[in-house]
């Protein structure tokens, strides 16, 4: 399983809508920009966002003699992507599955996709601590997993759920690379006043409480949301933005811990 993969990174959060998929895709794009070969696996079966975020919605997965060939996001084939979104006939179709079917699908994703010699495999997950997470964790037991990046927003109500995800990692022995706080503040485009829409400081407080490194704080930037819709990399297109700096730093952190 995952023979051609050097490093595996999970992107987790107990809470939904905090930006797991955005962080996953931008992290994958930034790693690619830094010269690595990257794979991105979306195990959110009921709400796959990665195909949309990478502007790959109309792409198909092909079957080869060795297994499923992932979709390539660029012409040099340095970013390959797998998601259930590629297998649905209609983008509005719901995947109404209970746990066992989801488990079967994820096992197939982990076993049957031909990732060709990639440096990093990023796994984007749905919110929660249930079937998808248990399945990924069980199947990665025999593969060396670098660890998990935990995404949160600053609100207490998100931090509550994220704390549960930390407990999940601890109980199941997944190392935690660190916590990323997304949607930290919004800078008003008219008066440049920064408002902490979803309050502030939740991520740092959580990292101190559970003694996990605090990796980065990502501000709300509607420009990122817009780029995201087109599958473009923040680092490549708006390199001077605060968000781009955050992702460059994040990649440094992630790749540094590998060499140590």
């Amino acid at each position: 399983m995952l023979d051609g993969v050097k490093h595996v990174i999970l992107v987790l959060s107990g809470k939904g809508g905090v930006g797991k998929s955005t962080v996953s895709t931008q992290l994958a794009l930034t790693l690619k920009e830094s010269g690595f070969k990257v794979g991105l696996l979306d195990v959110d079966l009921c709400g796959p966002s990665v195909p949309y975020l990478l502007n790959l919605e109309d792409k198909d997965v092909h079957q080869s003699s060795e297994g499923w060939v992932p979709v390539f996001a660029d012409s040099e084939q340095r970013l390959s992507v797998m998601s259930i979104g590629f297998l649905l006939k209609n983008r509005n179709d719901g995947v109404v599955w209970r746990g066992p079917k989801k488990t079967g699908m994820i096992k197939q994703f982990l076993n049957d996709v031909v990732w060709q010699d990639i440096d990093y495999l990023i796994i984007d997950t749905p919110p929660g601590t249930s079937d998808e997470h248990i399945t990924v964790m069980e199947n990665l037991r025999n593969v060396k997993c670098d660890g998990a990046i935990i995404v949160t927003t600053p609100q207490a109500v998100a931090v509550d759920d994220v704390l549960r995800e930390v407990t999940f990692c601890r109980k199941t022995g997944i190392p935690i690379i660190g916590i990323v706080e997304n949607m930290s503040g919004f800078v008003c485009p008219s008066c440049t006043e920064c408002t902490n829409i979803f309050s502030s400081g939740g991520g740092i407080a959580l990292s101190e409480m559970v003694k996990v490194p605090f990796l980065a704080k990502i501000p709300i930037d509607p420009a990122v949301g817009k780029l995201g819709d087109k599958g473009q990399s923040v680092v490549a297109l708006i390199p001077d933005s605060q968000v781009a700096q955050v992702f460059r730093k994040l990649v440094e952190e992630v790749t540094k811990s590998k060499e140590a």
């Binding site: 746990g99 601590t129 249930s130 079937d131 549960r164 407990t167 109980k171």
Partner: peptide, 11 residues
């Protein structure tokens, strides 16, 4: 405790 995770499968 607030940090308790409910790690349950579907059933």
């Amino acid at each position: 405790s607030p940090s308790d995770a409910v790690i349950w499968r579907g059933p």
